[in-house]
Each structure stands twice: as C-alpha cells, then as structure tokens.
C-alpha cells in the first residue's frame, strides 16, 4: 500500500513537472529595422499627401460619386490611383443627420476592416490607411476644418497619427494651416501645413520640407 502510494505520488509529481514545462522559442523573432528620424519624416510626408486628399472630402462631396448606404454616404477612390478604397461620410446639420449639401458637420471614416490602400512606390507594398476624421463645414465659404486620428500600416510597421485643425478649402486649394502628428516606432514627426504645395516636417531638432505634389523631402539647413 505504502509503495503504491509512493509510486502514485511520484507519478503525479512527474506529470506535474512535465506538464508545466514549455519549450523555449527557437525560431528567430528579429525586430524590424530600426527607423531613423528621416525615415519617419519621409513616412509622415507621404501621409501628409494622403491627408490633402482626405481632409476636404466632406467639403467636396457632391453626392454623385456614390449612393448613400446605412445612413452614410460612401466615396470610393478610383481604381488604379495612388489611393484606393472607400471612405464613409456621415453628414449632420445642427447635430441631426442631414443631407451632404446642407450639413455643417461631417464625419469621414474608413470601415474597420477596409482601410484605404495607398501606393507610395510603384511595385512596392501598399500602405494601409485607417482614418476617423471629423470636419466642421462652412459650405457658404467653401471651407472646412478637419481633425481626427487614424493608423497607418507601413510594411510591418504600425504607426498612429492625429490631425489637428487642418483648414482646407474646396477647388483644389492646399491646406491653409493645421498640423499632422505622426508616430512610428516611438519617433514622432509633426507636419505643419502653410497654404502652399509644401509643408514643414519636424522630428526633434531636425526639419525638412515636403513637396505635397510628390512627397519629396528636402532638409531644412
């Protein structure tokens, strides 16, 4: 009896020890390449281009581009362009849902599982851009102020961004003012719009000018 109990006890301890032991990981799990300030500034610069397209969407929406669905309007970028995908638009007037042509407020956002695909480099990996923007509209003046946030997937990097008071106008004008803050791998870049086809990108003490036509970055000396 005593031997049997000893055996059972040892068997239990053995099983407990065995079950509690896990194999170490052996497959390599390297970190993605470390980003430098200029890398993040470059990414922020390209995002600034996309924001130029996104921020005035609610202002420029004419209702002819897509049908309303589920109370939201949908704007779909043309296939084959640098931005592909659909942005949903929700219009309000004095806090109540309204048509797009009378609204004083609009939300512009991408559906959770359907980020925009942004092609930066021909043949490269499209960036995945998720956006959740709010826009105060002045349809009489043809201006709007956009703010909000979103995420950006750049290859294996997961970045976040916020938009603060970006003043836009219809008729293809450049954002007059406002800031885009972009953070990737702990490095934060701030893009400041100033009304022309360039914007300033700052990371710490370093600064660049980004050409909003093509994303080219030029250091500020």
């Amino acid at each position: 009896m005593r031997k049997t109990l000893t055996y059972l006890m040892l068997l239990f301890v053995s099983g407990w020890l065995a079950a509690g032991c896990e194999s170490d990981e052996t497959a390599p799990q390297d970190r993605l390449p470390l980003l430098e300030s200029e890398d993040v500034a470059g990414q922020a610069g390209y995002l600034a281009l996309a924001v130029v397209e996104l921020a005035p969407l609610a202002l420029e929406y004419d209702g002819g581009k897509a049908d309303a669905s589920d109370g939201n309007y949908a704007y779909t970028f043309a296939a084959g362009g640098p931005i592909e995908g659909t942005v949903l638009l929700h219009f309000e007037l004095d806090g109540a849902p309204s048509g797009y042509d009378v609204a004083d407020y609009a939300a512009a956002f991408t559906a959770d599982a359907s980020p925009l695909r942004v092609t930066i480099v021909e043949g490269g990996v499209p960036w995945l851009l998720a956006a959740d923007l709010e826009t105060d509209l002045d349809q009489g003046a043809g201006t709007a102020v956009a703010y909000g946030s979103g995420t950006l997937t750049v290859g294996g990097y997961e970045a976040t961004w916020t938009l603060a008071a970006v003043a836009v106008a219809d008729a293809g004008q450049w954002p007059a003012s406002g800031e885009l803050t972009f953070t990737n791998e702990g490095i934060t870049a701030t893009v400041t719009y100033d009304g022309d086809d360039t914007a300033t990108v700052e990371v710490g003490d370093s600064a660049w000018v980004v050409n909003l036509n093509d994303g080219t970055l030029t250091p500020v000396i």
Binding site: D39, G42, V121, G124, V125, G155, G156
Partner: peptide, 12 residues
C-alpha cells in the same frame, strides 16, 4: 520577403 529602403517597403 520585403525590402525596405529608408524605412519604405519598396518591394515584396
């Protein structure tokens, strides 16, 4: 297999 140049994924 993805190539990155200056932080941009340029080829995959």
């Amino acid at each position: 297999a993805t190539a990155y140049v200056d932080g941009l994924p340029v080829y995959q």
